[in-house]
């Protein structure tokens, strides 16, 4: 399983005085089982890029391959692609519309034309994946907290049993605990169900903690693509793109300046802790 993008160009308002290249000849391959963090400032082209991955928007030019098949080629089933590549939009809880939670999660698989038992099995399984048991099934979405509503919305996508799950800023507006809950659940989906994850985020600390590969977009182009450690080495360039590195990175550089022999590659709190303790023991 892989998604391959070849020179994806997408122009908003073409043939006017204000054409905008939202994605500018982007080529990249997303491999099976990766956990990708996608970062970039507002307007850098992240959301446009991810909408290409399940055929929601069609590139002005360029090719998209899913398992080496051209998704705009003859006989390619767009419906199947959309069930394989699940996209969770920003503020997905705004899309909850049924009167109870179980019905809401059933909506997607029901539209796939599956038998009723299978629809319910999938919905219940999806709700279990986001940590919501039977006691929630009959509740109205209005009775839930922000974080819970968002988990229901994610379950709605999971019920389609996707191979790839794309989440566009899934933690915006949630409190710290709610943030951790969502991200840990995503991590579990990745580890236990081998789901490929693409996480769009504005939190450098979060992508540092969870992603194994980071893609940085700026002006519609991929500027960096590598492990979080590799990417955050370019923290000065990231700043000029309106981004930053995790605070830990700044701490490591500041300690190095003071003569500490620390490894600058630490990007999470636990890595920094190990590194500082290691250096102190040596002193």
């Amino acid at each position: 399983m892989s998604i391959r993008l070849e020179k994806i160009d997408y122009i908003y308002e073409p043939d006017t005085a204000f054409p905008v290249h939202a994605t500018d000849h982007v080529s990249l391959t997303i491999h099976d089982g990766e956990f990708i963090g996608l970062i970039g400032h507002t307007g850098s082209g992240k959301s446009t890029l991810i909408q290409h991955l399940n055929g929601l928007i069609r590139p002005t030019s360029g090719k998209i391959y899913y398992n080496d098949k051209d998704i705009y080629g003859d006989g390619f089933s767009m419906k199947e692609l959309r069930s394989k590549v699940g996209l969770v939009f920003q503020y997905p809880e705004h899309q909850l519309f049924e009167s109870d939670i179980l019905s809401d999660v059933c909506f997607g698989p029901k539209n796939l034309g599956l038998p009723k038992e299978e629809v319910e099995r999938r919905a219940k399984h999806a709700l279990a994946l986001v940590g919501m048991d039977e006691s929630f099934y009959g509740l109205s979405p209005f009775e839930l907290s922000g974080g819970q509503k968002r988990r229901v919305a994610i379950a709605g996508v999971l019920a389609m049993e996707p191979e790839v799950l794309i989440l566009d800023e899934p933690t915006a507006g949630l409190d710290p605990k709610g943030r951790d809950e969502i991200l840990n659940q995503v991590k579990k989906l990745h580890e236990e169900n081998q789901m490929t994850i693409i996480l769009v985020s504005h939190s450098m600390e979060d992508v540092a903690r969870f992603a194994s590969r980071l893609i940085v977009m700026d002006h519609g182009k991929v500027q960096f693509d590598g492990t979080p450690t590799e990417v955050f080495r370019h923290y000065k360039e990231l700043e000029t793109m309106g981004l930053a590195a995790p605070q830990v990175t700044y701490l490591m550089h500041a300690l190095k300046e003071k003569g500490w022999d620390v490894n600058l590659d630490a990007i999470t709190v636990s890595q920094a802790k190990e590194e500082i303790l290691r250096v102190i023991k040596k002193k």
């Binding site: 409190d175 710290p176 605990k177 709610g178 600390e205 995790p246 605070q247 830990v248 701490l251 709190v269 636990s270 920094a272 802790k273 500082i276 303790l277």
Partner: peptide, 15 residues
């Protein structure tokens, strides 16, 4: 209270 602390506070606390 389901809250957090700034990353540096967290690191100092762990150390």
């Amino acid at each position: 209270y389901r809250l957090d602390v700034p990353q540096m506070t967290e690191l100092a606390y762990e150390l």
